[in-house]
Design a protein around this nucleic acid. Structure first.
Length: 656
RNA sequence: GCCGGCAUAGCUCAGCUGGUAGAGCAACUGAUUUGUAAUCAGUAGGCCGGGGGUUCGAGUCCCUCUGCCGGCACCA
């Protein structure tokens, strides 16, 4: 038999018969390794212990200590074991696919009856039985014909379709445990008992379209999480509880920020506290935009159909627009208007007023535009995904040659904003030309290169999203990561060759001829509503002092301190701090508890001692310790904290 | 939009197989003047999401609409 050479991680090589399996390799090294082994890496690929190795390769044997490999196998095998459990309980259920996902796995089933929470418990129990049976997992290669015949005979149409979709003459791999088998590319464990029986949990059932296509049947997806041990599972469940505590919908109610109601689905009733956050953030953005060379404009909410037809939105996004018909008194037909779903066509109208010269470019036009989009009901989510929202939108009208420099300037500016708002770390995604697109390839070449070069010059290597650009131009997306590791796509920066053309925007060049400007659509926060939701969840409601709607509560301990409390509040307000008095006839314990729960960052308690000494007792949110300080120094400190970051920086500069 | 679940007092939730709605917190009133995460007592509070049906009788069962929640699809 032919010999092959396998090189181990330590650099040593050994020779084996061609077709040797990692199981045999492990055995040849040591008994203990062969016992522990779960899979292998062969030339970097994750390799089943039973798969033959036919040529020279680098090999490493994985043990349960190898996080990535172990978790992948645990989750993948758990998915298969779940599918087997389901079919053992309900033999008529049809199986489809069951991949590994973050923290766990899912499997999609076709079953008439819906799965209930009680069913999940029964499935879990059955899964544990299967694990405890320690059934050996074996693998076989089948040809397509045999596999198709097998699945046809077993009435598994989804599997037949999957096989038919696998290209070419690739051999098909079947996995068996016990009498049960599934088509799978592997790798898997050696026996079902290698999945920890106490470290997985079935979480939920949800509908999911077959092959992700909304025109195809809806299947039932069961989601599970799986880990290497009980403790990791417990830690994950605790993390989920923590995330639930941060839910902006819950905190929004507790902090009295906003509410929503049936009569206005997907729209927000902002209460005073919430609106304070909104305006504070908007004031900040307005100052930043002004500093960044933007001009701010405001355009109509309700715009006649004809403009949307010209811009192309009517045809492409009409389904998602709120349309308003009005009986105008002199008109023969009803006037048809739409609430603006975006600001760009209106901005072009402003650009088109009068003649623009190349000297006017780049023209950075910003609007806190209130937009309405008819989002499908199932897409709505708290204040994160709504039907009425405010964008921090801007369009930069510039020459093609300016794309790169404007992109650089924008990335710099956006970095400052994200840093000020507590998101110093962010990722950039780059989407290039889609199959169906407008504009000549040379222009796309130039625009894509400009976006990429500008991003790299900012020291960021973007992730690539091939083919994901808009039909009218390539784009950058800015993704920030929150305090518990979740990603939020917020900023965008898109090149648009099409809209200036459609709406006939022109400028007079140095050559005296008319030219077509390029438009850069950009937003940094995305929508204020969603961004505030992200801020609330990121900070678990404990917003930075300058954004906190209620910054200070001054609480009396005895009613003889009431006058002093009012004096303290007045002093702080005069320094621009949002302070309020709490002189209710309640114990200080009660007041501290209540204001702490509603996330007021600073509580100043005043009793007779403070009245006499002209001090306050300071208690900061989240701290048990209190300290007594003079009113003057507390006011100085809180005033500094209440200053928004951009103004604080400016202040530093003028002082230095 | 699709699949599933849910909708009871301001909030969080009880209310078994149909027999006329209950708790805690909040609110209000009174007492208490209090030292850093709940002082005590009392009072009031509900078209049980909307509409229709079954029944002698519906918060409870059925149909339907709306909204919310978890996913899927969507996200210019």
């Amino acid at each position: 038999m032919a010999q092959i050479s396998l090189t181990f991680p330590d650099g040593n090589a050994r020779s084996y018969d061609a077709g040797v399996t990692p199981a045999e390799v492990a055995e040849s090294i040591s008994k203990s390794l062969s016992k522990k082994a779960i899979s292998a890496q062969v030339d970097g690929a994750h390799w089943d212990m039973q798969w033959p190795i036919k040529a020279d390769a680098k090999i490493a044997i994985n043990t349960p200590a190898d996080d990535t490999a172990a978790l992948e196998l645990i989750r993948h095998d758990a998915a298969h074991i779940m599918a087997r459990a389901v079919q053992e309980i309900w033999p008529d259920v049809k199986v489809t696919i069951g991949p590994v996902i973050e923290n766990g796995f899912y499997y999609d089933f076709d079953r008439q009856e819906p799965f209930t929470p009680e069913d999940l418990g029964a499935i879990e129990k059955k899964m544990k039985e299967i694990i405890n049976k320690r059934d050996p997992i074996t693998t076989e290669i089948w040809d397509r014909e045999r596999a198709i015949r097998y699945y046809q005979a077993n009435n598994e149409p989804y599997k037949v379709e999957l096989i038919e979709a696998i290209p070419g003459d690739e051999p098909l791999r079947m996995y068996w445990h016990g009498h049960w088998q599934d088509l799978c590319r592997g790798p898997h464990f050696q026996q079902t008992g290698q999945v920890p029986a106490d470290a997985f949990k079935l979480m939920s059932v949800a509908g999911a379209y077959w092959r992700g296509d909304s025109d195809r049947p809806m299947l039932q997806r069961i989601y599970g999480v799986a880990f290497r041990n009980k403790n990791d599972l417990r830690a994950h469940l605790t993390m989920l509880e923590e995330a639930a505590k941060r839910d902006h919908r819950k905190l929004g109610r507790e902090m009295d920020l906003f509410h929503m109601q049936e009569e206005a689905p997907g729209q927000i009733f902002w209460h005073p506290n919430g609106w304070r956050i909104f305006t504070e953030l908007q004031n900040y953005m307005r100052r930043k935009q002004e500093a960044g060379g933007y001009v701010e404009v405001n355009t109509p909410q309700l715009v006649d159909r004809s403009l949307w037809e010209k811009s192309g939105h009517w045809e492409k996004f009409g389904e998602n627009m709120f349309v308003v018909e009005v009986d105008e008194e002199h008109a023969r037909e009803k006037a048809v208007n739409a609430l603006k779903p975006m600001n760009c066509p209106c901005h072009v109208q402003i650009f088109n007023q009068g003649l623009k010269s190349y000297r006017d470019l780049p023209l950075r036009m910003a609007e806190f535009g209130c937009c309405n989009r008819y989002e499908p009901s199932g897409a709505l989510h708290g204040i994160m995904r709504v039907r009425g929202f405010t964008q921090d939108d801007a369009h930069i009208f510039c020459a093609e040659d300016d794309i790169e420099s404007e992109t650089s300037i924008y990335i710099q500016w956006l970095t400052e904003v994200y840093t000020d708002l507590g998101f110093a770390e962010f990722k950039v995604k780059f989407s290039d030309r889609p199959e169906v697109r407008a504009g000549a390839d040379e222009i796309w070449d130039k625009a894509e290169a400009a976006l990429l070069d500008a991003t790299r010059k900012a020291g960021i290597e973007p992730e690539l999203n091939p083919g994901e650009g808009a039909f009218y131009g390539p784009k950058l997306e800015f993704v920030l990561t929150d305090a518990i590791g979740r990603d939020w796509q917020c900023g965008t920066h898109q090149v648009d060759f099409v809209l200036p053309e459609r709406l006939d925007a022109t400028y007079v060049g140095a050559d005296g001829a008319k030219h077509r400007p390029v438009m850069l659509h950009r937003a940094c926060l995305g929508s204020f509503e969603r961004f505030i939701g992200i801020l609330i969840e990121n900070h678990a409601g404990k917003l930075p002092f300058w954004l906190a709607p209620r910054q200070v509560v001054v609480a009396s301990i005895v009613s003889d301190a009431d006058n002093y409390v009012h004096h303290v509040v007045k002093t702080l307000k005069a320094r621009g701090v949002r302070a309020e008095a709490d002189i209710r006839n309640e114990k200080i314990n009660y007041k501290v508890r209540e204001h702490s729960l509603s996330k007021v960052p600073a509580i100043l308690a005043c009793g007779l001692k403070e009245v006499e000494a002209g001090t306050v007792s300071v208690r900061r949110l989240g701290e048990k310790q209190t300290h007594v300080e003079t009113l003057g120094s507390v006011a100085d400190q809180l005033c500094a904290e209440a200053t928004p970051p951009d103004q604080a920086k400016k202040h530093e500069l003028t002082v230095v």
